[in-house]
């Protein structure tokens, strides 16, 4: 039988150097396909039946992850057009409306951020009510708490960046709440703001935290979180 064009491509040395597994026509090869692919390897090679049951998880963790990806992509695009300075921040934010897709990108970022807080919270509620925090998953619950705190911190630091009245007073109030910390209160506020009042230093600090520091740690904890899900017996269902 003569080989078809697709067969020839998938048998070629170049193809095989990228995708080790050939046509996945057996169960083993189907497993290996998932196993050997960088992007697919976070999925299990074999799925338990209850893992597909929608009402076990409501896909809340997955939605949170999807929203984080949307936020990363839109956030990177927005960074090209935003200057973290008190003279320009508000006008840069307004000028987004004049650009092709500018408004939709900003609103995607904004609504995804709101949505992520909600889905992370509901994810936690789901895990709690299904008692999925119990051993051996107890450490993953702790990692999840870290991710919740990071999600809230990302939302809060992003809140200052439009540099409007809501942002200014929101950060004034929030950082003043920090001063109620015993002993260290006023130092924490001073360190967070970089000055006595919300100003240029605070905007720059929050910008760096929002765009670099917090996303980095969120990504790190997400990697650990997903890895632990697999190591602790897969998503949902009894062990």
């Amino acid at each position: 039988m003569k080989k078809g064009i697709l067969q020839r491509i998938s048998d070629s040395a170049v193809w095989r150097s990228i995708f080790r597994t050939g046509i996945p026509d057996t169960d083993l090869k189907r497993s290996m396909l998932i196993f050997n692919n960088f992007f697919l390897h976070i999925f299990p090679a074999k799925m338990k039946r209850h893992g597909l049951c929608f009402s076990f998880t409501f896909c809340l963790g997955g939605i949170s992850c999807l929203l984080f990806i949307i936020l990363t992509v839109t956030g990177i695009l927005l960074m090209f057009l935003y200057t973290p300075s008190i003279e320009r921040a508000y006008f840069d934010m307004q000028a987004l409306a004049l650009l092709f897709n500018g408004k939709i990108l900003r609103n995607l970022h904004r609504w995804s951020a709101h949505g992520m807080v909600a889905t992370v919270f509901f994810h936690m509620v789901r895990v709690f009510y299904t008692r999925s925090y119990r051993p051996p998953r107890e450490f993953n619950w702790v990692v999840g708490i870290g991710l919740l705190v990071l999600t809230l911190a990302l939302s809060y630091t992003g809140y200052l960046l439009p540099w409007d009245q809501l942002a200014y007073w929101g950060i004034t109030v929030g950082t003043t709440i920090m001063t109620y910390t015993p002993f260290l209160g006023s130092y924490i506020r001073f360190f967070m703001l970089g000055a006595d009042e919300v100003g240029h230093e605070a905007l720059l600090r929050f910008y760096v935290l929002h765009c670099v520091v917090l996303p980095f740690f969120t990504g790190l904890l997400m990697a650990i979180h997903f890895w632990r899900v697999r190591k602790d017996g897969g998503i949902s269902g009894p062990l």
Binding site: F190, F191, G194
Partner: peptide, 9 residues
């Protein structure tokens, strides 16, 4: 390094 240089008034 990150400690603000501005001293409290």
């Amino acid at each position: 390094f990150l400690w603000p240089r501005k001293t409290q008034g």
